[in-house]
Simulated assay, not measured.
Amino acid sequence: MNILVMGGTRYFGIHLVKDLLAQGHNVTIATRGITKDSFGDKVLRIIFDRTDFDSVKNVLSEKFFDVVYDNLAYCSNDVKCILDIINCNKYIMMSSTSVYEKHWDTMEEEFHPLNKKLIWCTRMDFPYDEAKRQAECALWQDYNYINAIAVRYPFVIGKDDYTKRLYFYVEHVIKEIPMYIDNIDCQMGFIRSDEAGTFMAFIADKDYSGPINGSSFGTISIREILDYVTEKTGKEPVLSEDGEKAPYNCEPEYSINTSKAGKLGFKFSNLKDWIYQLIDYYIEML
């Protein structure tokens, strides 16, 4: 298939492109021409600013793709800027489990984009969770004629995680930096960055439309993470209300139901089979 990937030059987007190439697809990556990639002549490249309608129109108006991956749609205007122009058989948008009021066994049906008022907005108009909801509202309300999938992930982590959110906890324990954590015992879900890319590549040719969850099996709490770092290093976390606010603060206790992905034939990894190895990697770095 002829596939366009927006957001294919870093993080799980790199893994997505690698998997698509391994499957034999023809891949074009769209960038602003700033971030270099390591794909060489294995991919085609086009340059535009996805938030600029004229920039997108000038590049995409005469092109067709079997599948378009949009890893960069953060708000309703982002969706509009692409879908008013793009010509494709399938559109796969990177969404987030932030669209939910999360709890144990959170399922796709618990956020209904058709039941929420659509507001055309920019990325700065709302917090991340609401902006993502509006992106989905735009997709399902104004572009429901398009065969589309919205992939909803919890926190994506891995050795290539540029956000360094999990790294924050490891670093603060080892360097004895005070931190403020408001949900230390809440169980939370995660997905590894390479698996996030692999699942997105997996659904390229699947007969499915609508929202779909992705997450590693199992959950873990911040206390379990801190206890592991202490066990490995002998350093105790310094917890203080005056400390630096931790990245996963305000997250509730939850798990993500992935039965729909399972019915398509995809089996996610077990979180605790790999997260401690990732923590070991961070410990070694420090």
Results as ranks from 00 to 15, higher is better:
Y167Q: 15
C81S: 12
F126C: 06
K36N: 14
K159N: 06
Y180L: 09
L60E: 05
G210I: 08
Y100Q: 06
L44G: 14
G210M: 08
K235W: 02
M1V: 14
C75H: 14
G24P: 03
Y208C: 06
S38H: 15
I82Q: 10
S269L: 13
D194C: 10
I203T: 03
I34V: 14
F268P: 00
K36G: 08
H15K: 09
K116V: 15
N87C: 15
I203W: 01
I212S: 02
Q277V: 09
S193H: 01
E241S: 06
F199K: 02
D205Y: 07
P113C: 13
G234P: 02
S61K: 15
N147K: 14
Y281W: 15
F126A: 04
L114S: 07
F155I: 12
T198F: 02
I174N: 09
A148P: 01
Y162A: 08
D66I: 05
A196Q: 02
L21C: 03
K235P: 03
I3F: 13
M6R: 11
I47T: 08
V59C: 13
F202E: 00
C137L: 12
S215D: 05
I283V: 11
W140V: 07
Q141Y: 09
I149E: 06
G234C: 11
L16G: 00
I29S: 01
E110G: 05
I212H: 04
F217Q: 12
Q277G: 12
V151E: 06
T106N: 04
K263V: 03
D52T: 14
D41M: 12
D105I: 05
C81K: 14
Q23D: 01
A204Y: 00
S95G: 04
G189M: 01
N213G: 01
E244S: 12
S255Q: 05
D194G: 01
G8P: 13
I184A: 12
Y128Q: 00
L60Y: 07
G197Y: 06
D207A: 11
R152Y: 07
L226N: 01
R123P: 00
R45C: 09
D280C: 08
R123S: 09
F202L: 02
S55I: 15
Y143C: 12
G40W: 15
L21T: 02
E231H: 11
K57T: 14
L271E: 02
N270L: 11
V173S: 08
L278Q: 06
E110F: 08
E251K: 03
G13Y: 10
G262A: 07
P113Q: 14
N89Q: 14
M94K: 05
Y145H: 15
I119W: 00
K36W: 05
Y69I: 10
E171H: 10
T163W: 04
Y282C: 12
E253I: 11
W274E: 02
I157R: 05
L16V: 05
Q277F: 15
W104A: 07
R192A: 13
R152D: 02
E244N: 13
L139S: 06
H103G: 04
K90F: 04
S215M: 03
G262E: 11
P237G: 07
R133D: 00
S96Q: 13
L286H: 14
P127A: 13
G40Y: 15
T106W: 04
D78R: 06
I92S: 04
K159W: 04
T198N: 10
N249F: 11
D66A: 13
M200K: 06
K175G: 04
M179C: 10
I225P: 01
